[in-house]
Design a protein around this nucleic acid. Structure first.
Lengths: 217, 217
DNA sequence: GCTAGTATAGCACGGACGTTCGTGCTATAC
DNA sequence: GTATAGCACGAACGTCCGTGCTATACTAGC
C-alpha cells in the first residue's frame, strides 16, 4: 500500500512515526522518548535518531503523522456528506466514532497534545498544535456557516459559538471515556450534539437531520 | 495566618506544596521535578525530598493541596448561594471566575491532571485525580437534582446529562483560553451555560436566574 | 560484481532525574 | 549545660535522557 514504491529509509521512517503517534497519544509528546521508541521498534537509539536529527524535529514529524491520520479517519469521511447541517452532524459523529474505534490508543492525539502544551511556553510543537486545533474549529464553524447559509440553521445562529459548544461536548467525551473507562460519556456527547443541533435547526434543517424517508437510496 | 501556630517543618511543607501545585498545573505532575522545585524555593533537593520520602508521595500531597485550593476558590463560594438553580449557576460561574483569576498559573489544575493521566495506566495519582473529578461532577449533578426537585428545572431533566454538558463548556473554556490566549472562549462558555440552563429551567427557575428585583438586598 | 551512497549500529558525552547517606545546624527538654 | 530531636545541607549513586561521532552493513546503479 503506502509502503513499497518508496525507499527503505522512508518506510522505516513511517513505521517510526506511526509508533511515535501512538505512544504520544498516551504519554504526551514530551513523554515520548527516543530510547523507548527505539526499543519498541527493535532498533538502536542512534539509528532511529538519524532519521530526524533532533527530538523537536521528531515531535513535529509525529504531529504531521497524527494529522494525516486525523484527516483520513475523521475529516474525509465526514466531508463526503453533502454540505449543510448533515455535514456538521457528520463531523461530530465521525469524531465520536474515531474515539470509539481507538484510532489512537491514548484517545484523541490532538486533545492530549492540546492539554499538554496548553499552558506551556511557546515552542514549534505548541504552535503547530494550536494551528491544528484552530483549523478543526474552523472546519466545524464553516460547516455550521454553510448550514446557516442554506437555511438549515436559524439565521441568527452564531456559527463560532455553535462550533465551540459542539467541540466542548466532543472533547469531554474523549476525556471522560478514558478517565472512567465508561462509554456512557460518548453517548452523552452524542445526545448533547443532537439536541444542540435540533435546537439551532430550522424546520428544513431538522428534516435533514432525521433518517431518510424510504426509497431515497 | 495559616503560617505560625505550627512548626517550622510544617510551614516549609506548605510552601513546597503551594509551589508544587503551581508548577504541576503548567508542566503536569510528572513534569514536576524535585530538583527544579527545590531550586525555585531556594533549598536543597535532599532537604525538600525528606519531607515526602518519594516522588509519588509528593504528587499525592500536591493533589491534596490543589484540592484544598479548589474547594476554597470554587466550591465554597458557590455553596454559599442558596440551593437550586442559583447554586448550579453559581458553581459554573465560580469555575469560570477561578480560571479568569488565574488561581493556578497553568489553568485548572484538575483539568491538566485529568488530561495527563487520562490514558495512562493505573497509579495512585491517577486514581486520586479520577476521584476528584468524579466528585466535582457529582457536585454539579446534585445541584441540578436539587433544582429539579424544587421545580426550578423541568421534571424530565436528566441531571447527570446536564452536569456533563455544563462541565464540557467549562473545560473547553479552560483549554482554549490558555491555548489561544483569548478570553473570548470564557465568554462563550458563559453564554453556553446561561442558554443551557435557561432551556432546562421552568418558568419558576428562569425567574431565579434573572437579576434580583430592586430592593431585595 | 564492484562501487556510491544510504541506512543502521556502537559507543561515549554531559546533564537531569529520583533516591540515599552522612553531617551540621538550631532549637527545645532535661 | 548538656542531651535530644527536627530540619536542611552537600555529595554521590545508578539510570535515563538527547545528542554527537565513527564504523559497519545494506541497497542500488553501472
Amino acid at each position: 500500500m503506502s509502503t513499497r514504491n518508496t525507499t527503505k529509509g522512508a518506510r522505516t521512517r513511517e513505521d517510526i512515526l506511526r509508533a511515535a503517534a501512538d505512544i504520544a497519544s498516551v504519554d504526551g509528546l514530551d513523554g515520548l522518548s527516543i530510547g523507548r521508541l527505539a526499543t519498541e521498534l527493535g532498533m538502536s537509539k542512534s539509528g532511529l535518531f538519524a532519521h530526524f536529527g533532533s527530538k523537536e524535529s521528531l515531535q513535529l514529524a509525529t504531529i504531521e503523522e497524527a494529522r494525516q491520520r486525523y484527516i483520513q479517519e475523521v475529516i474525509e469521511p465526514a466531508l463526503s456528506s453533502r454540505s449543510g447541517i448533515v455535514r456538521l452532524y457528520a463531523l461530530c459523529e465521525a469524531f465520536l466514532s474515531y474515539i470509539e474505534r481507538g484510532v489512537f490508543p491514548g484517545g484523541c492525539f490532538f486533545a492530549s497534545a492540546m492539554a499538554e502544551f496548553d499552558a506551556k511556553g511557546p515552542s514549534s510543537a505548541r504552535g503547530r498544535i494550536a494551528e491544528c486545533q484552530e483549523q478543526w474549529m474552523t472546519t466545524l464553524e464553516r460547516a455550521a456557516e454553510g448550514a446557516r447559509a442554506s437555511g438549515e440553521l436559524r439565521a441568527d445562529s452564531d456559527s463560532r459559538q455553535l462550533a465551540f459548544e459542539l467541540e466542548a461536548a466532543l472533547l469531554s467525551a474523549n476525556w471522560y471515556f478514558h478517565l472512567f473507562h465508561d462509554a456512557t460519556n460518548i453517548e452523552r456527547a452524542r445526545h448533547a450534539v443532537r439536541t444542540r443541533l435540533s435546537r439551532e435547526a430550522t424546520p428544513t434543517g431538522l428534516h435533514q437531520l432525521l433518517p431518510e424517508p424510504r426509497g431515497a437510496g
